[in-house]
Nucleic acid binder design. Sequence first.
DNA 1: TTGTGTTTTATTGCCTCC
DNA 2: GGAGGCAATAAAACACAA
Length: 269
Amino acid sequence: MAGSATIQTRKRSLDQPVYSVAAEFSLGSNTMLNFGAAGGGNRSRNMVYSSLDQEEFGEDYLDEYCTQQEKKRRLTVDQVQFLERSFEADNRLEPERKIQLAKELGLQPRQIAVWFQNRRARWKTKQLETDYGTFHARYETLKSDYDNLLKENDKLKAEVLRLKQNDLGGDTDKESLQLLNSRGLPEVIPEDEESNVQSSAKSETSNVGSPRLTGGVTSHAFGCDYSDSSRIGDSSRIGEDNLQEPDYALPLSSFYHGFPVEDHAFNFW
DNA sequence: TTGTGTTTTATTGCCTCC
DNA sequence: GGAGGCAATAAAACACAA
């Protein structure tokens, strides 16, 4: 068999044989754990064979073996458990550790490397699924909060509109405004008192004729704190350069997280 | 038993690092 | 340029319903 006595490099060309070669390292049988063979012995032409095979049966056997065997062999439960424990300790594989594991499990170092490679891939997939679940749950929470804010805002706007339509001079309306203010909302100033506010403030808002919101519009007033973007997680952290003071000329419903909201629908995902 | 979907083992090609 | 990592993929092994 061509190439059977050469050490397989991982970067082989297409016309090279696919057989891995047991001579990649010399296996010390006294250090090898007794994991036995899995899968009943049918091994693929593509399947690496162990150093033990080479020691026991020699190259003639291996030539025949490599031409006849076409099946892969799965690792035993014990081998997998051993590898799992090793992976938990450190999912990176230094060359020395790879050799050591190969000796202890009776496998090729290449098999150890492949197993760790595939295991990292599985771990990454699992991690992505976990992260998705976490972020999606947070998204749902934020969306729910946002919807509640919208509803609250609509109610308040309706309340303000109703008050404006009434005779604003009456005590009843003042009491209503005080009630609104007592709810921890941005302070609503009756128009008859607004004249006492500095005239320069008038240019800050285009809501001429409407009760003025003071102290800025923040979610804190609604018992929520959305200013901490770290709740979302570092990977989705909002760039602080993008943070800006809300444009108070826009309606309250246009704000979320300090950003103008173009559309109520989130395109989070 | 068989068809089908999933998991595991292994290869290939490309990329980065030293 | 070699070694090692990763993504994509192939294919065998396995699980399981019909």
